[in-house]
């Protein structure tokens, strides 16, 4: 899993049946100093109601993604697993 910020959302009426009524959110990974890293990716909301501006925990593995979505037919690998309140760094 990685920590990311929700930077926007995407809407698409014509999509795969496995993605029916899924909320599509654009996320961008954050490093430990809260700086953006890499390219944005499209993730599915995992039911926690995350929106643009939230810092979230993103899961990037198909099997667990389908578990969160409770949908064995969802062709998805990137799902938001939680909304991060605080990150405490050890140093």
């Amino acid at each position: 899993m990685f920590i990311a910020k929700v930077i926007g959302n995407v809407w698409a009426t014509r999509k795969h049946p496995g993605l029916k009524n899924a909320t599509l959110l654009l996320v961008k990974a954050l490093d430990s100093r809260n700086k953006f890293v890499g390219e944005a990716a499209l993730a599915l909301d995992g039911g926690q109601g995350a929106g643009p501006g939230d810092t979230v925990l993103v899961l990037d593995e198909g099997g667990s993604a389908r578990k969160i979505l409770k949908n064995p037919g969802a062709p998805v690998r990137t799902v938001i697993a939680g909304i991060v309140d605080r990150v405490h760094l050890g140093e």
Binding site: K5, V6, I7, G8, N9, V10, W11, A12, T13, R14, K15, H16, G18, L19, L24, L26, K28, N34, K35, F36, A40, P52, G53, P75
Partner: peptide, 18 residues
């Protein structure tokens, strides 16, 4: 690789928000 959706629109308010 499989196409699973056609994009109607997107909004990126958090663009570069950091």
């Amino acid at each position: 690789a499989a196409i699973v959706g056609i994009i109607d629109g997107k909004s990126i308010p958090g663009h570069g928000l950091n």
